[in-house]
Design a binder for these strands. Structure first.
Lengths: 261, 261
DNA sequence: CGTAATATTGACACTTATCAACCCGCGTGG
DNA sequence: CCACGCGGGTTGATAAGTGTCAATATTACG
């Protein structure tokens, strides 16, 4: 797959899986040798449309992908965000009719993995089946956390929480370095993820900047006060099931307090 | 299980599964002969606490169960509601450490099914494994729909949407008769599910009543204008994957319009 | 029959949305 | 090389939706 820049997306995918499930050597090898065909997607372009029936799953190799829904007023709600190493589509194995469209928020490269290959590896390795099933469960838990965030926190806390989550997930894929991580999505897209307006996201962003919690330069966020962000967003990363990332971030700033509730 | 009033919860569970997955006769029998030990829970009592590690899953036999989270302010967000026939806990097979507490909203009877038995049936029948996995995916999709509802609809639409969902799910378990179905939860609990205040839920309820869409008598809701409720809530039931229930409701009121988007 | 839980109502405060304008950086094309 | 256009960020004034608080009515239940 030499034509893909950046790390092998299967390696990132595997690393995330192994943070959450134990695999045998054969299972590991099986995952790493899954067939894949790459595909470039321009920003704002759909990756999978509503109701499409897929015969492959989509693994993000680079860029940011969103799953969303649209209400009649035209407003969008982003229901999940995905970075490199995320198999956006794993549930399509069980529900081939796509329940919510996928869109590339940035210039994105994904690799498509045939359902046939996934079904095969799942049938051969019960450990992989369990791991994939577990991934689906965790994805559901993350959505549930977003629901809590949108339902019961004010705009500032919502934003802080989302930023914390994306920081931890970026860290998991080695994209969090020197307190900075890429967040190349527009404030309007952030608003769609938080159930807010772009204007209000802008103001809350200024508020977080004003308190010295972070700096933001359009496509990147620099965390200035991780503990402060965690406090504002009431962020407890256990729901991400990425223990390494947690440790990595906790030590990055001075405070030694544990982040757990 | 003669000491359980009402229908065998396993039968309800099986019926829902079969609405979504195809099973063989042996798989069906396997599910119906799962061992279970009943348990009565008083209203407002926890069924599973945060972080508990379970060795069994909980199937609702009667009553209403909620999964929720609590933010620091003390506010609660209900993340899913469950009625008879729902295996509230299926994901605990994959994540034994419970990520969100379960509480009985009404007087409830659940039956506990040992993980050992579930693991066993899953290992013996790949079709059951797929069906259970699919249930987890659908549960996740429902949460995603709630996120859309809370993030991008106003209070009236949110309430209408929730009522539509509970109507369809009640219908699936034969509890929707004569345009009425049980909804024995308080307005405060509804508010916690919708990210609203009890006071505001009260007002929106009055609004829906005032428009002749429904009548509510505390523990029961009588649907007066199903099509109207669907319109106000922008409700499209496909995400529930309960095709029978949809047909049953669509014909119940005069309008013959299809409900699909 | 009494008591607590729930539903209802009203007045008011506050968060967030809406609308409109403006700025800025960047790529494009003349 | 500069003008232009455009997407995205920023700002201000105002409106709308929902929250808060407190009191009262109603219902459920022992």
């Amino acid at each position: 797959m030499s034509f893909l820049k950046g790390p092998d997306p299967l390696k990132l995918f595997l690393a995330k899986i192994e943070a959450r499930s134990q695999l045998t050597d054969e299972e590991r090898d099986g995952i790493l040798s899954l067939p894949m065909t790459p595909r470039q997607v321009q920003p704002h372009r759909d990756i999978v449309r509503l109701g499409d029936t897929a015969d492959h799953a989509c693994l993000v190799a680079d860029g940011i992908v969103a799953r969303f829904a649209q209400v009649l007023s035209g407003a969008r709600q982003i229901v999940s965000l995905h970075v490199a190493g995320d198999m956006v589509d794993l549930h399509s194995l069980l529900l081939p009719a796509n329940p919510a469209p996928l869109v590339a928020l940035t210039s994105t490269t994904i690799v498509q993995i045939p359902h046939a290959a996934l079904h095969d590896i799942v049938a051969r390795f019960p450990g992989v089946a369990a791991a994939f099933w577990r991934e689906c469960v965790i994805d559901g838990n993350i959505v549930a956390h977003w629901l809590v965030n949108v339902g019961r926190r004010d705009a500032r806390a919502r934003l802080a929480h989302l930023i914390c989550e994306m920081a931890v997930r970026s860290n998991q894929i080695e994209k969090f370095v020197g307190g900075r991580f890429p967040m190349p999505i527009t404030q309007e897209q952030i608003a769609d993820a938080l159930g807010l307006t772009a204007v209000h996201v802008n103001r809350m962003m200024q508020s977080l900047r004003g308190e010295g919690l972070l700096e933001s330069s359009g496509r990147e966020i620099t965390v200035r006060d991780w503990q402060g962000l965690v406090r504002v967003g009431e962020f407890d990363p256990v729901y991400l099931h990425l223990p390494n990332a947690l440790a990595g971030l906790a030590q990055r700033n001075s405070a030694t307090t544990a982040l757990n509730s």
